[in-house]
Design a protein around this nucleic acid. Sequence first.
DNA 1: ATCAATTGCGTTATGCTATAACGTGTGCGA
DNA 2: TCGCACACGTTATAGCATAACGCAATTGAT
Lengths: 132, 132
Amino acid sequence: MTTPMLTKNQSLVFDILTKAEAPLSAYTILDKLRDQGFRAPLQVYRALDKLLEYGVVHRLESINSFVACAHPNEDCHSHGLVAFAICESCGQVIEFHDHEVDHRLMDWLKSQKFKAEKSTIEIRGHCANCAA
Amino acid sequence: MTTPMLTKNQSLVFDILTKAEAPLSAYTILDKLRDQGFRAPLQVYRALDKLLEYGVVHRLESINSFVACAHPNEDCHSHGLVAFAICESCGQVIEFHDHEVDHRLMDWLKSQKFKAEKSTIEIRGHCANCAA
DNA sequence: ATCAATTGCGTTATGCTATAACGTGTGCGA
DNA sequence: TCGCACACGTTATAGCATAACGCAATTGAT
């Protein structure tokens, strides 16, 4: 999907996420944007919806937070299979793609005649820096 | 992990989940247990915490719901890598384990020196029956 | 036997996450 | 110029989850 010109609100949200070192919740984003005139959650959620649709932002289901896509130019989000390693100490997220895993999962789904639409692969634990 | 004797509340919650045809949210469970004396969300969440700890219930992060483990005797939950295919039409969930996927993910994590603790693999889409 | 620690339980209150429903303004093609 | 699509703003509400208090029962060491 080609990403259209972002609107003002979308740009503000996207910039915050791009600069962040860790995933942010919608309400954290809201707080960071109060100075730019944001007042209500919907302003954030509406921008996030579009950014998710464009594939430039990912939602981390297991922690109700959002991150900017780490590989926005690779078109990997188009096939949907993205995985995340989330450090529970420092909050850092490593985004990765593994075609082997993809194929294996897709094969299984196919064998079940299950039609996949969205996938979530999230591993929580501790990154190399934070591991005891 | 061996599952200790369940308390009254834990049993009530577990029974509801076992009988359910689809995952249930904590508040749905609460409503179903009002007749048995449940009054507050915490009664449900506390029971769920224990059932999750014992590995007899899974949490579906992407839909904020809970299901009874489909393979409680296989000890598969001990290695943590469980995947779910969730039908967005009928709500049915297929739980499965794929060692190939497991190993592949584990290898990647190892290469990053990332220490995994909890994993989430959830595919949303449409099951064979519901696919258009 | 008794005391302390642990665990489960109940209740109230609160906080965090997400969306419904309404109305406004703007741009653009028929 | 009319109608439509879309972004936006606001208020209110729904849905998910936990904090903090206190009580009762159990256990196990002294």
